[in-house]
Protein backbone atom coordinates (compact mmCIF):
# COMPACT_ATOMS: atom_id res chain seq x y z
CA UNK A 1 0.00 0.00 0.00
CA UNK A 2 2.90 2.32 0.61
CA UNK A 3 3.76 1.62 -2.97
CA UNK A 4 0.36 2.72 -4.08
CA UNK A 5 0.69 5.96 -2.17
CA UNK A 6 4.13 6.44 -3.63
CA UNK A 7 2.73 5.76 -7.06
CA UNK A 8 -0.03 8.30 -6.59
CA UNK A 9 2.44 10.86 -5.31
CA UNK A 10 4.63 10.36 -8.34
CA UNK A 11 1.56 10.56 -10.53
CA UNK A 12 0.56 13.76 -8.81
CA UNK A 13 3.96 15.29 -9.53
CA UNK A 14 3.86 14.12 -13.12
CA UNK A 15 0.52 15.81 -13.60
CA UNK A 16 1.53 19.18 -12.28
CA UNK A 17 4.46 19.49 -14.65
CA UNK A 18 4.62 20.58 -18.26
CA UNK A 19 1.36 21.75 -19.64
CA UNK A 20 0.35 24.60 -21.89
CA UNK A 21 -1.54 27.44 -20.36
CA UNK A 22 -4.82 28.54 -21.82
CA UNK A 23 -4.81 31.82 -23.69
CA UNK A 24 -6.15 34.74 -21.69
CA UNK A 25 -8.50 35.93 -24.37
CA UNK A 26 -9.46 39.21 -22.71
CA UNK A 27 -5.78 40.09 -22.38
CA UNK A 28 -4.94 38.85 -25.87
CA UNK A 29 -6.21 41.95 -27.64
CA UNK A 30 -4.95 44.30 -24.91
CA UNK A 31 -1.38 43.42 -25.76
CA UNK A 32 -1.60 45.15 -29.09
CA UNK A 33 -4.45 47.64 -28.81
CA UNK A 34 -3.87 50.58 -26.45
CA UNK A 35 -6.83 51.30 -24.28
CA UNK A 36 -7.95 54.91 -24.22
CA UNK A 37 -10.72 55.41 -21.79
CA UNK A 38 -12.08 58.76 -20.69
CA UNK A 39 -11.42 62.29 -21.79
CA UNK A 40 -8.28 63.72 -20.25
CA UNK A 41 -6.54 67.01 -20.52
CA UNK A 42 -4.38 67.59 -23.59
CA UNK A 43 -3.51 71.16 -22.84
CA UNK A 44 -4.67 74.11 -20.77
CA UNK A 45 -3.74 77.72 -21.36
CA UNK A 46 -4.75 81.27 -20.55
CA UNK A 47 -6.44 83.57 -23.02
CA UNK A 48 -6.75 86.90 -21.26
CA UNK A 49 -9.11 86.35 -18.38
CA UNK A 50 -10.27 83.03 -19.73
CA UNK A 51 -8.78 79.59 -19.24
CA UNK A 52 -9.07 77.21 -22.14
CA UNK A 53 -8.76 73.52 -21.59
CA UNK A 54 -8.77 70.93 -24.37
CA UNK A 55 -9.59 67.32 -23.54
CA UNK A 56 -9.29 64.28 -25.74
CA UNK A 57 -9.54 60.53 -25.23
CA UNK A 58 -6.57 59.42 -23.19
CA UNK A 59 -5.21 62.99 -22.96
CA UNK A 60 -3.42 62.93 -26.32
CA UNK A 61 -4.12 63.91 -29.89
CA UNK A 62 -3.26 61.36 -32.57
CA UNK A 63 -3.04 61.21 -36.30
CA UNK A 64 -6.55 60.25 -37.38
CA UNK A 65 -9.90 61.06 -35.88
CA UNK A 66 -9.93 62.87 -32.53
CA UNK A 67 -12.99 63.96 -30.69
CA UNK A 68 -12.27 66.94 -28.44
CA UNK A 69 -13.91 68.80 -25.59
CA UNK A 70 -13.08 72.49 -25.29
CA UNK A 71 -13.85 74.15 -21.99
CA UNK A 72 -13.57 77.94 -21.84
CA UNK A 73 -14.09 79.49 -18.44
CA UNK A 74 -13.21 82.69 -16.66
CA UNK A 75 -13.84 83.63 -13.03
CA UNK A 76 -16.43 86.42 -12.99
CA UNK A 77 -16.29 86.79 -16.76
CA UNK A 78 -19.14 86.88 -19.21
CA UNK A 79 -20.24 83.41 -20.30
CA UNK A 80 -18.93 82.13 -23.61
CA UNK A 81 -21.72 81.83 -26.14
CA UNK A 82 -19.97 80.36 -29.18
CA UNK A 83 -16.61 78.88 -30.12
CA UNK A 84 -14.76 77.91 -33.29
CA UNK A 85 -11.83 75.60 -33.86
CA UNK A 86 -9.42 75.62 -36.77
CA UNK A 87 -6.30 73.42 -36.84
CA UNK A 88 -3.53 74.69 -39.10
CA UNK A 89 -0.30 72.93 -39.84
CA UNK A 90 2.68 75.23 -40.08
CA UNK A 91 6.29 74.89 -40.95
CA UNK A 92 8.08 72.43 -43.13
CA UNK A 93 8.10 72.84 -46.86
CA UNK A 94 4.37 72.64 -47.35
CA UNK A 95 2.08 75.58 -47.40
CA UNK A 96 -0.05 76.12 -44.33
CA UNK A 97 -2.95 73.70 -44.51
CA UNK A 98 -5.65 72.26 -42.35
CA UNK A 99 -7.35 68.92 -41.88
CA UNK A 100 -11.00 67.86 -41.49
CA UNK A 101 -12.43 69.48 -38.42
CA UNK A 102 -15.65 70.86 -37.00
CA UNK A 103 -15.17 74.60 -37.28
CA UNK A 104 -18.26 75.57 -35.35
CA UNK A 105 -18.15 73.78 -32.01
CA UNK A 106 -21.39 72.65 -30.38
CA UNK A 107 -22.07 73.55 -26.81
CA UNK A 108 -22.90 70.78 -24.40
CA UNK A 109 -24.83 72.68 -21.74
CA UNK A 110 -25.03 69.72 -19.39
CA UNK A 111 -21.27 69.27 -19.24
CA UNK A 112 -20.34 72.89 -19.78
CA UNK A 113 -17.96 72.37 -22.67
CA UNK A 114 -17.86 72.67 -26.44
CA UNK A 115 -17.59 69.54 -28.56
CA UNK A 116 -15.91 69.01 -31.87
CA UNK A 117 -13.45 66.86 -33.74
CA UNK A 118 -10.26 67.05 -35.76
CA UNK A 119 -8.91 64.46 -38.17
CA UNK A 120 -5.18 65.04 -38.20
CA UNK A 121 -3.60 63.94 -41.41
CA UNK A 122 -0.05 63.94 -40.04
CA UNK A 123 1.62 63.76 -36.68
CA UNK A 124 3.70 66.65 -35.38
CA UNK A 125 7.37 66.58 -36.18
CA UNK A 126 10.24 68.91 -35.27
CA UNK A 127 9.79 70.90 -38.48
CA UNK A 128 6.04 71.25 -38.62
CA UNK A 129 3.48 71.60 -35.93
CA UNK A 130 -0.25 71.89 -35.51
CA UNK A 131 -1.67 75.17 -34.24
CA UNK A 132 -5.20 75.36 -32.96
CA UNK A 133 -6.86 78.64 -33.79
CA UNK A 134 -9.66 79.05 -31.31
CA UNK A 135 -12.20 81.79 -31.54
CA UNK A 136 -14.90 82.43 -28.94
CA UNK A 137 -17.54 84.99 -28.23
CA UNK A 138 -18.31 86.27 -24.76
CA UNK A 139 -18.82 89.98 -24.19
CA UNK A 140 -16.80 90.39 -27.39
CA UNK A 141 -15.07 88.04 -29.85
CA UNK A 142 -11.69 86.65 -28.81
CA UNK A 143 -9.05 84.76 -30.74
CA UNK A 144 -6.20 82.66 -29.50
CA UNK A 145 -3.62 80.30 -31.01
CA UNK A 146 -2.15 77.34 -29.21
CA UNK A 147 0.27 74.76 -30.50
CA UNK A 148 -0.62 71.14 -29.68
CA UNK A 149 1.40 67.98 -30.09
CA UNK A 150 -0.11 65.36 -32.39
CA UNK A 151 1.25 61.85 -32.02
CA UNK A 152 1.49 59.02 -34.47
CA UNK A 153 -1.53 56.75 -34.26
CA UNK A 154 -0.54 53.77 -32.11
CA UNK A 155 -3.93 52.13 -32.35
CA UNK A 156 -3.86 50.24 -35.64
CA UNK A 157 -7.65 50.22 -35.72
CA UNK A 158 -8.11 53.94 -36.04
CA UNK A 159 -6.33 54.41 -39.31
CA UNK A 160 -7.09 56.98 -41.95
CA UNK A 161 -6.43 57.46 -45.63
CA UNK A 162 -6.58 60.42 -47.96
CA UNK A 163 -7.21 60.30 -51.67
CA UNK A 164 -8.46 62.33 -54.58
CA UNK A 165 -11.27 61.57 -56.96
CA UNK A 166 -11.14 61.95 -60.74
CA UNK A 167 -11.97 65.63 -60.52
CA UNK A 168 -9.11 66.19 -58.13
CA UNK A 169 -11.26 66.71 -55.04
CA UNK A 170 -9.44 65.69 -51.86
CA UNK A 171 -11.08 63.24 -49.50
CA UNK A 172 -10.13 61.97 -46.08
CA UNK A 173 -11.57 58.77 -44.67
CA UNK A 174 -10.89 58.03 -41.01
CA UNK A 175 -11.97 55.15 -38.78
CA UNK A 176 -13.69 56.15 -35.57
CA UNK A 177 -14.86 52.81 -34.15
CA UNK A 178 -14.25 50.11 -33.07
CA UNK A 179 -11.37 51.36 -31.06
CA UNK A 180 -10.79 47.87 -29.76
CA UNK A 181 -12.12 45.28 -32.19
CA UNK A 182 -13.04 41.79 -31.14
CA UNK A 183 -13.32 38.47 -32.90
CA UNK A 184 -16.98 39.21 -33.38
CA UNK A 185 -19.40 41.43 -35.21
CA UNK A 186 -18.03 44.96 -34.80
CA UNK A 187 -19.94 48.17 -35.43
CA UNK A 188 -17.75 50.02 -37.87
CA UNK A 189 -17.90 53.82 -37.87
CA UNK A 190 -15.95 56.07 -40.19
CA UNK A 191 -15.89 59.73 -41.05
CA UNK A 192 -15.67 60.85 -44.69
CA UNK A 193 -14.59 64.43 -45.45
CA UNK A 194 -13.93 66.45 -48.55
CA UNK A 195 -11.80 69.55 -48.86
CA UNK A 196 -13.82 72.51 -50.02
CA UNK A 197 -11.53 74.00 -52.63
CA UNK A 198 -11.68 77.76 -52.14
CA UNK A 199 -13.25 79.59 -55.04
CA UNK A 200 -11.68 82.95 -54.20
CA UNK A 201 -8.65 84.27 -52.41
CA UNK A 202 -8.54 85.00 -48.72
CA UNK A 203 -10.91 87.75 -47.66
CA UNK A 204 -10.19 87.69 -43.95
CA UNK A 205 -6.91 87.91 -42.04
CA UNK A 206 -5.03 84.61 -41.64
CA UNK A 207 -6.38 82.11 -41.09
CA UNK A 208 -9.45 82.67 -43.23
CA UNK A 209 -11.75 79.69 -42.45
CA UNK A 210 -13.04 79.70 -46.02
CA UNK A 211 -9.54 78.78 -47.20
CA UNK A 212 -9.36 75.79 -44.85
CA UNK A 213 -12.85 74.36 -45.00
CA UNK A 214 -13.75 70.67 -45.05
CA UNK A 215 -17.24 69.31 -45.26
CA UNK A 216 -18.71 66.05 -44.08
CA UNK A 217 -19.59 64.05 -47.18
CA UNK A 218 -23.22 63.03 -47.19
CA UNK A 219 -25.14 60.26 -48.84
CA UNK A 220 -22.21 58.27 -50.20
CA UNK A 221 -21.87 54.51 -49.83
CA UNK A 222 -18.69 52.70 -48.77
CA UNK A 223 -18.63 49.08 -49.90
CA UNK A 224 -16.71 46.89 -47.48
CA UNK A 225 -14.66 43.73 -48.09
CA UNK A 226 -12.48 42.85 -45.09
CA UNK A 227 -9.64 40.40 -45.74
CA UNK A 228 -6.55 39.09 -44.04
CA UNK A 229 -3.56 40.06 -46.20
CA UNK A 230 -1.13 37.69 -44.45
CA UNK A 231 0.07 35.15 -47.05
CA UNK A 232 -0.65 32.22 -44.75
CA UNK A 233 -4.28 33.29 -44.54
CA UNK A 234 -4.76 33.03 -48.28
CA UNK A 235 -6.98 36.10 -48.72
CA UNK A 236 -9.34 34.95 -45.96
CA UNK A 237 -12.49 36.98 -45.50
CA UNK A 238 -15.50 36.98 -43.22
CA UNK A 239 -19.26 36.71 -43.70
CA UNK A 240 -22.17 38.98 -42.80
CA UNK A 241 -20.37 42.29 -43.22
CA UNK A 242 -22.45 45.38 -43.90
CA UNK A 243 -21.41 48.23 -46.16
CA UNK A 244 -21.04 51.63 -44.56
CA UNK A 245 -24.00 53.93 -45.03
CA UNK A 246 -24.36 57.59 -44.16
CA UNK A 247 -26.10 58.09 -40.83
CA UNK A 248 -27.95 60.93 -39.15
CA UNK A 249 -24.80 61.84 -37.24
CA UNK A 250 -23.05 62.51 -40.57
CA UNK A 251 -20.80 59.51 -40.01
CA UNK A 252 -20.74 56.24 -41.93
CA UNK A 253 -21.94 53.12 -40.18
CA UNK A 254 -21.46 49.49 -41.14
CA UNK A 255 -20.61 46.11 -39.64
CA UNK A 256 -17.32 44.29 -39.94
CA UNK A 257 -16.80 40.73 -38.74
CA UNK A 258 -13.31 39.70 -37.75
CA UNK A 259 -12.98 35.94 -37.63
CA UNK A 260 -9.70 35.95 -35.73
CA UNK A 261 -7.16 38.37 -34.34
CA UNK A 262 -4.31 39.58 -36.48
CA UNK A 263 -3.78 41.76 -39.51
CA UNK A 264 -6.83 42.71 -41.53
CA UNK A 265 -7.40 45.05 -44.40
CA UNK A 266 -10.67 46.85 -44.93
CA UNK A 267 -10.92 46.93 -48.71
CA UNK A 268 -13.27 49.73 -49.62
CA UNK A 269 -15.06 51.06 -52.65
CA UNK A 270 -16.57 54.51 -52.43
CA UNK A 271 -19.67 55.40 -54.40
CA UNK A 272 -21.29 58.83 -54.53
CA UNK A 273 -25.01 59.64 -54.21
CA UNK A 274 -25.58 58.68 -57.84
CA UNK A 275 -23.87 55.32 -57.30
CA UNK A 276 -20.88 56.33 -59.39
CA UNK A 277 -17.49 55.03 -58.41
CA UNK A 278 -15.38 57.61 -56.60
CA UNK A 279 -12.48 55.48 -55.51
CA UNK A 280 -11.62 51.84 -54.84
CA UNK A 281 -11.13 48.60 -56.71
CA UNK A 282 -12.70 45.19 -56.41
CA UNK A 283 -10.29 42.69 -54.83
CA UNK A 284 -10.14 39.03 -55.82
CA UNK A 285 -12.21 36.77 -53.60
CA UNK A 286 -10.49 33.49 -54.36
CA UNK A 287 -8.58 31.64 -51.69
CA UNK A 288 -4.86 31.97 -52.44
CA UNK A 289 -2.73 30.47 -49.68
CA UNK A 290 0.85 31.66 -49.66
CA UNK A 291 0.13 34.84 -51.57
CA UNK A 292 -0.05 38.29 -50.04
CA UNK A 293 -3.61 39.55 -50.29
CA UNK A 294 -4.33 42.13 -52.97
CA UNK A 295 -5.69 45.34 -51.49
CA UNK A 296 -8.18 47.78 -52.93
CA UNK A 297 -6.72 51.12 -54.01
CA UNK A 298 -8.90 52.47 -51.19
CA UNK A 299 -8.19 50.54 -48.02
CA UNK A 300 -7.40 50.92 -44.35
CA UNK A 301 -5.27 48.39 -42.44
CA UNK A 302 -6.31 46.95 -39.12
CA UNK A 303 -4.32 45.14 -36.45
CA UNK A 304 -5.63 43.76 -33.20
Amino acid sequence: MEKIILFLTVLCCALTSCTKEKTDYEAEIDTIVPERSGFKEVTQFQSGAYTIRIDALGGNLYKGYNKVHVKISGQGQAPVSAATLLPIRNGGTAQAHSCPHSYQLTYNAGQGYFEGYMVFTEASDPLSQWDLHIGYTADQPYRVVQQVPVQEQDNKNLGMTSFTDRDGAQYILALIAPQKPKVAENELVAGLYRFDTPTAGATAPFPDPAQFSYSEVQGYTILLDPRMPEPSMGNHSSPNNKDLLHGADNLYHGVVNYTMTGNWTLNLILHNQQGDLVRGTVVPDDFTPGVVGVKSELHIDILF
Binding site: T23, V183, E230, S232, T261, G262, L303
Partner: peptide, 20 residues
Protein backbone atom coordinates in the same frame (compact mmCIF):
# COMPACT_ATOMS: atom_id res chain seq x y z
CA UNK B 1 -14.73 22.32 -23.56
CA UNK B 2 -12.17 24.78 -24.82
CA UNK B 3 -10.22 24.63 -28.04
CA UNK B 4 -7.93 27.31 -29.35
CA UNK B 5 -6.18 27.89 -32.60
CA UNK B 6 -3.30 30.21 -33.12
CA UNK B 7 -1.85 30.64 -36.57
CA UNK B 8 1.62 31.96 -37.04
CA UNK B 9 2.40 34.36 -39.86
CA UNK B 10 5.22 33.50 -42.20
CA UNK B 11 7.13 36.43 -40.87
CA UNK B 12 7.15 35.37 -37.25
CA UNK B 13 7.74 38.92 -36.07
CA UNK B 14 4.20 39.73 -37.17
CA UNK B 15 1.21 39.33 -34.98
CA UNK B 16 -0.11 35.80 -34.52
CA UNK B 17 -3.72 35.14 -35.35
CA UNK B 18 -5.95 33.72 -32.69
CA UNK B 19 -9.45 32.32 -32.45
CA UNK B 20 -11.36 29.79 -30.43
Amino acid sequence: SIAEMRMYPQDRSNRTMFAY
